[in-house]
Nucleic acid binder design. Structure first.
Length: 307
DNA sequence: TATTCGTGGAC
DNA sequence: TGTCCAAGAAT
């Protein structure tokens, strides 16, 4: 008797159905999901898209107030497209990563010019928009249009790493094996798949967190490979953290904070005051211009971009 | 593939 | 108190 030949690229995903995970996770979601406005029935595709841009690398609690003001100000893509990009940066406030505001503005322009103001509904169309990558395209298609996609964000990747693969953390970058696993775990039914995507993400955000996970509240703790293995700690290369204090990145933030508050061009001498050390402000300012976040004017003044 | 890009809350 | 982390994308 010969053992069956393993196909190339075989992985744990090939042996996983996920059928035992769907119902408990979705039932848990029905009882414990946070009440986020972008999940309400009246939230359309534009609202979902706005929320996904804002939620990139940003916690829900900080997104909520900006999200509400944003949709009140620009309830349709065409409303944002009609604004100057600098107005989007100003309305972005202190959410962080302000290039997301420029990209969302660019996406609204493209939607308005190329698609008649209607948010596109296929992942290929979504991927063609600025600021939309693999995750956000799948998320908008799934959450706004109920389509069946593997939605692989940091939460889902961690849940799968633990529950299925049996390790504490997923790899630093998303791997082909993770994509295969996510597709293998996807429920066949379209509506169930969309529900599963949101539910598994929420589980990672609320229970199966990066630190201080609360397995006692987990609906699949009894099937979790990592927990059943005694929750071994992550081994391998350290997951490198981010340094921020004292970097040009921090200076960029301070410069933009001044420009967001100003409603007239600001002289460079004033901008240099945001930082004690003399070299970093001009350098950071020079970096903001090619990024399209700051517009230089004749005479050495600066403002948020009008074009 | 590894870096860069903000901000603030939790511990 | 400093470290870690949060629904990634672009290059």
């Amino acid at each position: 008797m010969t053992a069956p030949t393993k196909p190339p690229h075989s992985s744990p995903a090939d042996d996983v159905s996920g059928a035992d995970l769907h119902a408990p996770v979705i039932d848990w979601f029905d009882d414990h999901a946070r009440d986020c406005p972008w999940r309400h029935p009246e939230a359309g595709a534009w609202a979902v898209m706005v929320s996904e841009f804002m939620l990139q690398q940003t916690p829900v609690s900080r997104v909520l107030p900006v999200y509400e003001q944003w949709l009140a100000r620009v309830p349709r893509p065409a409303d944002l497209a009609a604004d100057a990009p600098g107005e989007a940066v100003r309305a972005w406030g202190r959410l962080g990563y302000p290039r997301r505001a420029l990209r969302l503005h660019g996406a609204a322009v493209a939607i308005t010019e190329r698609h008649g103001g209607d948010v596109v509904g296929t992942t290929a169309q979504l991927l063609a928009l600025p600021g939309i990558g693999e995750y956000t395209a799948a998320a908008v298609a799934s959450f706004a249009y109920g389509q069946r996609h593997a939605v692989l964000d940091t939460n889902v990747r961690r849940v799968f790493a633990r529950a299925v693969t049996g390790v504490q953390y997923p790899p630093n970058a998303t791997t082909a094996a993770e994509r295969r696993l996510a597709r293998a775990l996807l429920p066949e039914d379209e509506g169930t798949a969309a529900r599963w995507a949101a539910a598994s993400m929420e589980l990672g955000a609320l229970v199966c967190t990066a630190k201080n996970e609360t397995c006692v509240r987990c609906p699949i703790a009894g099937q979790c490979a990592w927990r059943l293995a005694g929750k071994p700690e992550h081994d391998g290369p350290p997951r490198r953290g981010q340094t921020y204090a004292g970097t040009d990145r921090q200076v960029r933030g301070k410069l933009l904070a001044v420009l967001r508050e100003a409603h007239a061009p600001v002289p460079q001498e004033a901008l240099d005051q945001v930082w004690q050390e003399p070299v970093q402000p001009p350098r950071a300012l020079d970096g903001l211009v090619p990024d399209g976040l700051v517009e230089p004017l004749p005479g050495g003044t600066y403002r948020l971009p009008l074009t």
